[in-house]
Design a protein around this nucleic acid. Sequence first.
RNA 1: GCCCCCGUAGCUCAGUGGACAGAGCAGGAGCCUUCUAAGCUCUUGGUCGGAGGUUCGAAUCCUUCCGGGGGCGCCA
Length: 572
Amino acid sequence: MYRSHECPMLRRYDHASSMTAFPDAIEHAVLAALGAASEAGAIPTLSDLAFVVERPRDRVHGDWATNAALVAAKAAGMAPRDLATLIVEHLPEVDYLAATEIAGPGFINFTLTPEWFLEVLRIAATGGPDHARGEPGSREKIQIEFVSSNPNGPLHIGHGRGGVIGDVIARALDYSGHSVSREYYYNDAGVQMDLFAASLEALYLQAHGRDAEFPEDGYHGDYIKDWAAELVADLGDELLDVKDRRDQIRRWGLQRAMGDIEETLEIARIPFDVWFSETTLHESNAVDRSIEVLRKRGYVFEEEGAVWFRTTDFGDEKDRVLVKSDGEYTYIAPDVAYHRDKFERGFDRVINIWGADHHGYIPRMKAAVEALGYDPDRLEIVINQMVNVNRAGEPVRMSMRSGEFISFREVLDEVGTDATRYILAAFSPDTTINFDLEAAKSQSMDNPVYYLQYAHARMCSLERFAREQGIERSSIEEVDLTVLDHPAEAAVLRQIDRLGEEIFEAAARRAPHRIATYGTEFATAFHRFYTDCRVVTDDPAVTQARLWLIEASKSVIVAILTTLGLSAPESM
RNA sequence: GCCCCCGUAGCUCAGUGGACAGAGCAGGAGCCUUCUAAGCUCUUGGUCGGAGGUUCGAAUCCUUCCGGGGGCGCCA
């Protein structure tokens, strides 16, 4: 018996197990066949073979295929096709395996029995969207830090992209059985915060008719004027003659910005477990203490009045300043402390989602982790490229400084959370996105999000219709599922079988867009089934079996939509 | 100058070692008196930026060149 609650890719590496599950059952069988063949003296003993068992692109090549014979041919001293024949001859029995075939240059193709897919159907139909979920907490303890925008303005679309990517990766990791903690780090200390407060202060004073010079590198966006007006409305002239005016405005501004950010993330369905303040690192002396750790380990030196971190010891192109000659920290110092704090909290792995404009920062952060005594591979940085915003083909300027600035929240309001999330999740993080507001709003196939949701709405509609016709779904044990032999039904079953491995793969490769791609393929198979096969028919046996197929399909589409953070409408 | 990402069909993008390179949109031809046509079928369309190399096998790996974007601060 196999354990359906485990992710298939997890099972692949579980060599102690003897259960039937694919593709690992095939991998074990091929290894056993190679062993048997070598014991029989037909080939030398082979080790460290890097063969794969994967789903062939083309259906005619079966359900699974392996390149084992191609990979091992040279070491075995045989032609690939001859070795493939030998492997097939020595193959032990595998449950649910219907046929093997040697094809092309020496691939071995495996076709499974219909019974396998009916097992898949039963599991998916009765197990719900979580039927392919990994055992909770069975894998790594992972912290994922993302968005982490400075609390001095609204989020822009680039933050939105990082937010959606981080969120979907977190959801996929969680589904795969990892323990995930989602964290937002905000720089509520430092120069940018001062400048933000000074900008608000100047506008506040000007509003009261005082002579106040706007700071040279102050913030100019429209939002800063709006927020200053709110500040005036909130506090009136209370702050005009108080000594700690700047500090009070800084606190007010922090609240205002963080409130806006939190609301925006909530609209975007991007939750966080931990909100981490930079200020707390200063207050606990964690910044000084981590510099001392680096110093003790021999990576700190003084030069020209500044304190330096010798990151070149770890392959960085130049050393970096930790404490400036004026005594102020650079941004690196609290970041070192922050990452030390992360590892002290005991995470197996720490993932940061950064925009492409920060890629040059990777070597120094990795250096910091290594210098602190941790394996730098435990820190992973996922870089996502930029987002360009267009309106009907015309670029929308995204400069913080110019007045022309469209916030993430405005995009969510105008386009809607589902379509916005889909677009930000559907592209590889390595691809620059051209986000067209008009195209995003259109309810057509310019917008594949509806294609996925429509599949779900159709499933619900079919179930509603059946109920209206007075059809009760029988218990699945009493239903003859073998009537599901239409090619369109078989195609849906094959797609259902992919769920676990697709989400696992997306999580493992930090590639959230794979889920969107799989979702489209699943929806295609379902829409085809809908067109080809009538569900509510005069034949009760067929109706029952198809209602269960829909139940299983619903499990899968809901799992996909949920992992992408999309809603699952019951009608459209 | 150095570093990173991208270059695949008219457009937007999947595909990072396998079997004739895929999807959507756009173009052409069809499918609703029956469960949602935001759907389905068929079809046109590609020297995978160029050139070398590694491999039984390269869009995928390496070198180099050409385009586009981003980054190289005692700013964050």
